[in-house]
Design a protein around this nucleic acid. Structure first.
Length: 665
DNA sequence: TTTTCTATCAGCAAC
DNA sequence: TGATAGAAAA
């Protein structure tokens, strides 16, 4: 019972699916059945007797990876024990776990997230004595990342950060720690310095498939090229119009690089849209045509739809969220749209708050994506830091986080002394601790605290190496350090918060337990778990209870998703396009437009745009102007409705007219 | 010397 | 709203 590829795919899709030898570029417009093409393509390869182990498919999120894996499994009905589907970062981490010793790191290396990076940078800034006026940590972090991912080079402007950059990497190395960018940088270094390693990967992965190609960085492209240039069976799938991650290194010049490096490539364009009504597609096409330097494409679905785009001008964010909540109620009741088929999108996380309030007032069930994820909560990160130190005691950043949490009386002075000693003897803080203990010159009070801490880490280190249950170990650890007492102390005024946070820790232990006991999990050790949660994406935790809930998320988080009805809030100048994005560079206007494009192409049936006339930003009421992108949507497709207020039809007309004259259409 | 309290400042997107 | 730095209290 094979798959009838011809019958189940349109002709462009069929071509994309069955062209498996040689390089292939698939331009997949929004809603053009991209995931379907990828899954069918993998199935087709398996049907053509290409072994699972020869196939590598890389995406950007774990969620997308798992979904792909799941769909291939359903489609083929095969057990996929040897198929490699993952994210760039997880694949990089996997390579490092196996070979990083060749670069002089221990396989128990820690992976630093943005927070950890910033903590480390703060330290480095002091050490190199950088002028604090120049020391905006986020700027420095971004610069470092830009340099590492190859989207910036050292120049007169950023030269001042060079010393910090060097110091930062010296520290990472000493701590046996890597940052996210290193998960690509180090495998490349490994490939370039150890030909036998790259040879083994090339031999194994003869067929490579890259999803969301428009989001790859120069570095990732280089990585792909190293893997694929011998066999040249490289298929990249992407949509230049949906490139919205340039700030994370995405470089859509990669399309050109691919064309240069693989001149024999074939190209397939998927333009038939299976998602949206024609009105929405026309608006999207019109909008995106204002961008220059893009691959020309016109989405079409032929699906008729009555007016599907509604625009309102609420007076402020309160009225906006009321309008959204009330409209959702109506749509759910009258059109029988289930809650989970509704998406409310915003440009920034801060815009979510008033909308959440309205949902609560109106009893609308909702699910948040984005914001701080479970694993970024303080209490969870604390325990994770303990686990990291237990596994890798040289990880100073994690150690500094926990050495006085809960309070053990190791304060600023003591830490300063420790730091000095460590630097002087070129030791990690942990080694400094043990060495000072051994030397016995410490005041007895301090010595006892140090000793207790070191014993704690050692005892749990032993438990981990004995491979006792990680979940049990975590529960015992939380108990042993009396974290609950610490929480109660921190929230004396609010016991509920303390209990809630403690509950989170218990939930954390349960999650570990579930992971440990998963029969599909071949190697449930602590290192693997820590890697996993470093790379986990926010929406992975709660996919079960998503039914019957409105999705409230940022536009970035909505990429790849679709909803019957989509609300886009805060369609105002300065929000989208975002003022800070434009500050950085004029060129960001096009990316902001793509962001807007991604937002509107999420909608199948209807799209609601709201643009407030006034908004409270940082405790101040600001007059807002509608987003200039509204001007780029065809007039006749948009219905301007009065918001549910005492605003008259004339007022609305008036606002619209004013807006027009401002942007001069 | 450490902990707690208070004032001040800054807030785009996230693997 | 939350994080952080500096001052007062323990």
């Amino acid at each position: 019972m094979g798959i009838d590829y011809r019958a189940e795919l349109n002709s462009a899709q069929y071509e994309a699916v069955t062209t498996i030898d040689g390089p292939l570029l698939i331009i997949a417009g929004a809603g053009s059945g991209k995931t379907r093409v990828i899954t069918y393509r993998i199935a087709y390869m398996l049907d053509s007797h290409i072994p699972q182990k020869a196939i590598l498919a890389l995406t950007f999120t774990n969620k997308a990876a798992r979904e792909m894996w799941e769909r291939v499994r359903t489609l083929t009905g095969k057990k996929l024990t040897n198929l490699t589907v993952g994210t760039f970062h997880s694949f990089g981490a996997q390579i490092l776990r196996e070979h990083i010793h060749l670069l002089g790191y221990r396989p128990t290396f820690s992976i630093y997230d943005t927070q950890d990076q910033k903590a480390l940078l703060k330290q480095c800034i002091q050490e190199v004595g950088l002028n604090p006026d120049l020391a905006n940590i986020s700027t420095i972090r971004n610069t470092i990342s830009a340099i590492k991912t190859g989207r910036a080079v050292w120049n007169a402007e950023n030269e001042v950060y060079r010393a910090v950059y060097e110091e930062y990497h010296a520290h990472l190395r000493a701590y046996h720690a890597v940052d996210f960018d290193d998960l690509i940088v180090l495998p490349i270094r490994l490939f370039e310095t150890h030909p036998e390693v790259i040879a083994s990967y090339r031999e194994r992965f003869r067929y490579i498939l890259i999803d969301e190609f428009q989001d790859t960085s120069i570095l990732q492209y280089h990585f792909i090229k190293l893997l694929a240039e011998e066999h040249r069976n490289l298929c990249v799938v992407g949509d230049d119009d949906q490139s919205i991650y340039s700030w994370r290194g995405a470089n859509y010049e990669n399309f050109a690089l691919f064309e240069r490096d693989f001149p024999e490539r074939k190209e397939v364009k998927l333009e038939q849209n299976y998602r949206s009504v024609q009105t929405i597609l026309e608006a999207a096409n019109q909008l995106i045509s204002h961008n220059t330097n893009r691959k020309e494409k016109r989405l079409w679905s032929g699906r008729p739809g009555k007016t599907a785009i509604y625009l309102t001008f609420p007076s402020d964010e309160r009225e906006e969220s009321e309008y959204i909540a009330e409209t959702i109620r109506t749509v759910v009741l009258k059109e029988r749209i289930p809650y989970h088929e509704i998406g409310v999108l915003v440009r920034t996380n801060s815009l979510m708050t008033p909308i959440e309030d309205a949902f609560l007032r109106h009893n609308i069930p909702y699910k948040l994506s984005g914001g701080t994820s479970f694993f970024e909560r303080k209490e969870i990160k604390d325990i994770i830091a303990y686990l990291r130190v237990i596994l890798n005691p040289d990880d100073d950043v994690s150690l500094l986080r926990i050495i006085n949490t809960p309070r053990r009386g190791i304060g600023r002075q003591t830490l300063h002394m420790l730091g000095e000693y460590a630097t002087e003897h070129e030791l990690s803080i942990y080694s400094a601790l043990t060495s000072l203990l051994y030397a016995q010159g410490l005041p007895p009070q301090v010595a006892r605290t140090f000793d207790e801490f070191v014993s704690l880490i050692e005892e749990f280190g032993e438990r981990i190496s004995r491979r006792t249950s990680i979940a049990e170990t975590v529960r015992d650890l939380v108990d042993r350090i009396d974290y609950f007492e610490y929480l109660m102390q921190e929230h004396r005024d609010n016991e509920k918060v303390a209990r809630y946070r403690y509950q989170n820790l218990m939930l954390f232990a349960d999650l570990i337990e579930r992971w440990e006991n998963d029969p599909d999990n071949l190697n449930p050790n602590l290192g693997a778990y820590l890697t996993r949660i470093s790379l986990i994406t926010k929406d992975e935790l709660d996919e079960e209870d998503t039914k019957g809930k409105v999705n409230l998320m940022t536009i970035h988080a909505a990429k790849g998703l679709e909803f019957a009805h989509v609300f886009l809030a805060g369609v105002e100048d300065g929000i989208i396009p975002h003022a800070r994005a434009l500050e950085e560079s004029e060129a960001n206007m096009e990316e902001e437009r793509r962001l807007f494009y991604v937002a509107i192409t999420r909608a199948r049936e209807a799209l609601y745009l709201t643009s407030c006339r006034q908004r409270r930003v940082m405790r101040e009421d600001q007059e807002q102007t509608p987003s200039p992108f509204l001007e780029e949507l065809p007039d006749h497709l948009i219905e301007t409705k009065a918001p549910p207020s005492d605003l008259t039809e004339e007022d609305v007309e008036d606002i619209f007219a004013r807006m027009k004259s401002r942007f001069g259409s």
